[in-house]
Design a protein around this nucleic acid. Structure first.
Lengths: 181, 181
DNA sequence: ACCTGAACACCGTTCAAGT
DNA sequence: ACCTGAACACCGTTCAAGT
């Protein structure tokens, strides 16, 4: 059987999407690939390594918004992508909150936010802090929505929540801009 | 052996604190109580029920800030309590994002935030929305900090992040107040 | 280099039985 | 009402062996 790390991560994501993260076992992933469980270990280390790889995949599937769009528009696109990723993989998604934001895919995603914030006029020395707070909020929001914490609220309510949050941030940043005029 | 739901949840939390959530199994909890695994089922339903009970416990251990304190102070106290709870139970904590915020303990915690926001002058019809956004941010922040997402940042940096976030919220809300003056 | 077979020490849960 | 014993269908992982 021809297997490699990429094929293993593909199979894992497909399995998680079809039957949930609880159904993801070394044995089930191996069976899906027509291989014995032990064949996976060479490629992903162990089960934790498999899950780390899957989380990294999720981050790498986030879009790279067109640089010609307005900064607000780019942030909204990233936020929307995060929400739909969370909905597709609710259990994998929360793992994002459980590992250092220093992996390659994590850095790539962060750079996009940095660029949008800088273009929006956030002073250079504040960009990392604002990124941490905005990303933390969005991860919490997307995880909550996909995880069912907001189950009793309509999609419209949550969309309005998010729009309000963007206004608050814009207000805080716009304030910084105005002070430079 | 005399066992009941409370004793089971106590044993589970102690086990999670000592050896991590991965060490929490029906069998391990039962062994700690000197009982067979099957004895637990009558009291907690199944493993999911056990975990639900533990999450509820965490929420119920949050403090009830003194109503005589300034609203800001009360929110800071709740935020601090959330952070230390997350640090003590990082894996249990993320489960908060995975279940509806409609359990009794969840409602009790929410009422405290409602009261603080109302006392801070947030218009009544905005209180639920602001609570959702503030709580979502705090859950995401505490989970990230405890889960290691901010591993490369110092405690001082994170404290400053949080203080900045509070300023942003105060700015947005203070704005609402000022417009009524 | 890469995959397999057999084995070890675990899981959650059901079901019938005991007291 | 509450706990037990035995059993079923699973886990992750190691290790020696095969090609």
């Amino acid at each position: 059987m021809a297997i490699n790390r990429d094929a293993i991560l593909d199979a894992t994501l497909a399995l998680a999407e079809e039957r949930g993260l609880d159904a993801v076992s070394m044995r089930a992933v191996a069976a899906r690939l027509g291989v014995t469980p032990m064949a996976l270990y060479r490629h992903v280390g162990d089960k934790q390594g498999l899950l780390d790889g899957v989380v990294e995949r999720l981050l790498d599937e986030l879009p790279s918004p067109d640089a010609s769009l307005a900064p607000d528009e780019r942030l909204r696109e990233l936020a929307g992508a995060l929400r739909s990723t969370a909905r597709r993989h609710p259990d994998v998604f929360v793992m994002l909150l459980r590992r250092p934001a220093t992996t390659p895919a994590s850095l790539r995603a962060r750079e996009r936010v940095y660029a949008a914030l800088a273009d929006a006029g956030v002073p250079e020395d504040l960009v990392p802090r604002v990124e941490r707070l905005v990303s933390t909020f969005m991860l919490g929001f997307a995880a909550s929505e996909a995880g069912g914490r907001f189950a009793q609220h309509s999609r419209a309510t949550l969309d309005a929540d998010l729009a309000w949050a963007l206004e608050v941030v814009r207000g805080a940043l716009g304030g910084g801009r105005r002070s430079a005029e």
